[in-house]
Design a binder for these strands. Structure first.
Lengths: 102, 102
DNA sequence: TCTAATACTATACATTGTGTAGCGATAATG
DNA sequence: CATTATCGCTACACAATGTATAGTATTAGA
């Protein structure tokens, strides 16, 4: 009982990130591509609203899961932090489950 | 590129389940308690809307992740299927990440 | 029989996500 | 150097989703 409550609290941080629509898919791209640009994601993911994408990237930055670096005064690219790369095992286990039951 | 697209598609099944608000928390309870009742979840999770809970349970049933069995004509309990138990590794990896960065 | 719990549903509202358009700035092309 | 395309977003109105609160029929327990 107490155990249960404790463990549920502990999953929350991950669900707050991965629970948002598109976020797991986005992170997948980061893992495959190392550095990613805004419009690259738009093209690859297909169907994501730029406003939503913008919100996700900002949120991921705020949580230190990705970093934004400018390649010129107006163009930028994003890449995973260590914290972000640590999500890889989660994404892998999701992939395994998905493959088994797709 | 082609690889990326393939892999993203593969994560989708898991995100469709775990991406909905509350669902990972719910599943956590199933794992700890084996069989769970509607109001038990309401109490344990705290704050989940019964309408939302109802929708989640129906969805999980539709995806063969839980089964519903009646203990009387109007009372029932839910439990994980094998497919549902296979989500345990995902939840564990989410827990690990959460613990590391909470 | 009375009370409390179970497993929900109903309604109105708040929050979140979407489609489409567009904008200022920069990079590529001719 | 002028034109065109691309980049990284924002704005708007709308659709979908989740929430607070209340309520319902049934039933288990005292």
């Amino acid at each position: 009982m107490t155990v249960a409550t404790t463990q549920i609290g502990c999953i929350k941080a991950a669900t707050e990130i991965l629970g948002d629509k598109w976020t797991p898919q986005l992170l997948r791209f980061f893992i495959n591509e190392e550095t990613v640009r805004f419009c690259q994601i738009q093209d690859l993911v297909g169907g994501i609203n730029p406003r939503t994408l913008s919100a996700r990237l900002t949120q991921l930055e705020d949580h230190d899961i990705i970093t934004k670096s400018f390649t010129s005064s107006s163009r930028c690219e994003y890449q995973l932090t260590e914290k972000g790369r640590d999500l890889l095992p989660v994404l892998h286990s999701m992939e395994e489950w998905s493959n088994k039951y797709a």
